[in-house]
Design a protein around this nucleic acid. Sequence first.
DNA 1: GTCTATACTGGGATAGAC
DNA 2: GTCTATCCCAGTATAGAC
Lengths: 206, 206
Amino acid sequence: MTTDTRVRILIAAAALFARKGFHGTSTREIAAAVDVRQPSLFHHFASKQAILAELLDRDLDPTLGRLRRLRASTPDPASALYAYLLEDIAELAVSPFDARGIYNDEVLEDPGLRPQRRKRRALHAEIRELVEEGIESGVFRSVDPAFARRAISGMVLDTIWAKESDDAGDLADRPRQLAEFVLRGLLRDPAAIEAVRQRALETGDR
Amino acid sequence: MTTDTRVRILIAAAALFARKGFHGTSTREIAAAVDVRQPSLFHHFASKQAILAELLDRDLDPTLGRLRRLRASTPDPASALYAYLLEDIAELAVSPFDARGIYNDEVLEDPGLRPQRRKRRALHAEIRELVEEGIESGVFRSVDPAFARRAISGMVLDTIWAKESDDAGDLADRPRQLAEFVLRGLLRDPAAIEAVRQRALETGDR
DNA sequence: GTCTATACTGGGATAGAC
DNA sequence: GTCTATCCCAGTATAGAC
């Protein structure tokens, strides 16, 4: 018994969205990739947009959950951020759904994707709060939290684009590299990074 | 005498591409924004893609030029990178052409945009080399240069997205914040950042 | 250099049989 | 749950008058 057609549609659509964008991908292409006829898609999803909505949900929901859990269980904002970045990048790397095409902000603008847009905002707010906590407690430099949040999102996004790029480098080490880079940019005392990583790994492992 | 229609098309198209993406923007919308009929566009540009191509050229050519000039005139890679980031972000902020929509990699894949794709690769290569030089000379930590290049691109891209966002923070200070963040992530000795900034400003000012 | 009219294509989605 | 057939619209681009 092969994988659920519904899931195969999601996987194929995600891959195509990543390569050609949402608008640049036709339902016919998705259908061809799944090896069904184009109208069959509409038995599983009400619309092309509904496919995207489910992809977004399947990425945003667990990500938001992870971050909130980490924030609750890890008092130190620096370690929480470090652990979040590790987990997020690692998760993106192993997910069957290629996330590279679903966060082009243009597409999230559509009124039909309001719930997803709200979740994404919530995620951004959580990260931003984490940065603010770090600044208030004095561990982070006093950067503009909005800027830091954007820088982090941009790096994460662009890092996952490296999935199959030619100049990808050592992919397995990417989560750590990213977390390290971000924390170094934020920490008032970069030497503290060893301790931060240590605490982050402790919380992550249990 | 109002601005050249050709230029007004470029400005309007860039703004729409930024908001809705290339595929998500129709030539009708562009025409409406310029207040001409849709077929009139084709007097100025051979195709919709040609509009995008020119936008890319107008951004890539000067950017690549600036970076190469800086590399030639600034022996210290750390300062060169700092100066480049300052200039690049500042330039993006004042450009009449909104650059946010033109670098969705999906769209650069089209065979018709090969020249632009090549230029972009060249730009990436230059940045990567800058990072490599910094590592070889011992000023930068030994990060994966491909990763660093991606992180930088991602941050720049996402930073310009902040142009009119609600949580934009202090926009005027963004170039410095970005350059500082990146250099802190790279420098082996973060305390050296003062000297790096100093040298960068000297080269930039003349 | 801009217009109107229109050709042509491809895309999303539905109807209804099996 | 998948198929064939088909509708309908939106999109790019061209022709040719002014």
